[in-house]
Design a binder for these strands. Structure first.
Length: 305
DNA sequence: CGTCGTTGTCTGCGTGGCGT
DNA sequence: ACGCCACGCAGACAACGACG
């Protein structure tokens, strides 16, 4: 069995923790800026590297260039290895895990069931609404913070990270067609040529598939809208001259929306399509059923004694 | 001269646009 | 009408250049 320790790979790249990191002055300044961003957004941690980058551009006078972004990514790696940037502050969702839950014994399993009933018992919180809402996000890195808002309404958040393959669109369309009310997709993506085309292609494909299966779906562009640029003072860039697709005006990445603004936009978007009284009634019903469920668990406990 | 920073490259899939 | 190419996206690695 090989023994692993902090070390350097063949060509000098750090492995494990970096005990002796002596960043140069320029990098040290970058570290300070990143720490300021993390402090500013401590309510919304963890952030993706890209979200940090856009905040640096928007509020710290950084250039929005690919090389500056790469420099940030390299620093974030070294900085975390060296303990200067907290591990829990940066998120990367490109990882999946498959495993089964295990229990120490049957009693432990019952405890877990009670905990699940208490914390996770949910009714369909969209039950009784005239439409079924879904959030669709171009960037998978934004999903956790969108979910934080959407979950309380029972609204799912979808993302396939950049592009949407035809098999994904077909699967989802068939799922949409299974609902007895029309589906409304609230979409969040970049305001640039490929972002607009991704959105159009998504809406047209899912719309066509869904129609064939007897369902109905509407697509709303929630963000980024051209009007958001002046409204929130977003960082823009000219469209890449190499991209010949027709596009007017400046481009904006979805990550340049500050996390708190994004949360507000989503909350308003959901509530504008929600009958709030129906929603509150479901919440009441849910709480009552949960309480009844927990009583059953407590009765089981007393029987044991 | 060792350590640190920069840059090109890779991954997979869909897109527009060009050439055949 | 088709194939092919460049490009976009995010993040990390390897090679090489620069700093101290």
């Amino acid at each position: 069995m090989a023994e692993f320790d902090n070390c350097r790979a063949k060509h000098g790249r750090a492995r494990g923790f970096l005990d002796a990191w002596n960043p140069q002055a320029k990098t040290l300044a970058l570290v300070a800026h990143v720490q300021a961003v993390l402090a500013e957004y401590r309510e919304h941690l963890p952030l993706t590297a890209r979200q940090i980058f856009y905040r640096l551009v928007a509020a710290h006078g950084f250039d929005k260039t690919n090389r500056d972004y790469k420099r940030l990514c390299e620093m974030l790696v070294s900085g975390r290895r060296a303990g200067v940037i907290p591990w829990d502050a940066i998120r990367d969702d490109g990882f999946t895990r498959a495993s089964s839950d295990t229990y120490s014994d049957a009693g432990d399993f019952m405890k877990a069931c009670r905990y699940t009933a208490e914390k996770h018992f949910r009714l369909d919180r969209q039950d009784g609404q005239r439409e079924r809402l879904v959030v669709w996000c171009e960037t998978s890195g934004m999903v956790p913070q969108l979910e934080r808002v959407a979950d309380r309404y029972g609204v799912p958040v979808f993302s396939s990270g950049g592009f949407d393959s035809v098999s994904v669109k077909h699967t989802i369309a068939r799922e949409f067609a299974g609902y007895d009310v029309p589906v409304r997709v609230l979409h969040i993506g970049d305001h640039d040529p490929s972002g607009i085309h991704l959105f159009m292609s998504l809406a047209e494909d899912i719309g066509a598939f869904c129609k064939r299966y007897g369902g109905r779906v509407e697509f709303d562009r929630l963000a980024v809208l051209p009007g958001h640029i002046p409204q929130f003072g977003l960082v823009t860039a000219p469209p890449k001259p190499s991209d010949r697709r027709r596009f007017e005006g400046q481009t904006v990445q979805a990550e340049s929306l500050p996390p708190d603004v994004l949360a507000d936009l989503l909350r308003q978007g959901v509530e504008s399509h929600f009958n709030m009284q129906v929603y509150l009634d479901v919440l009441d019903d849910e709480a009552a059923q949960r309480a009844a469920l927990l009583e059953q668990f407590d009765d089981l406990d007393t029987d044991d004694e």
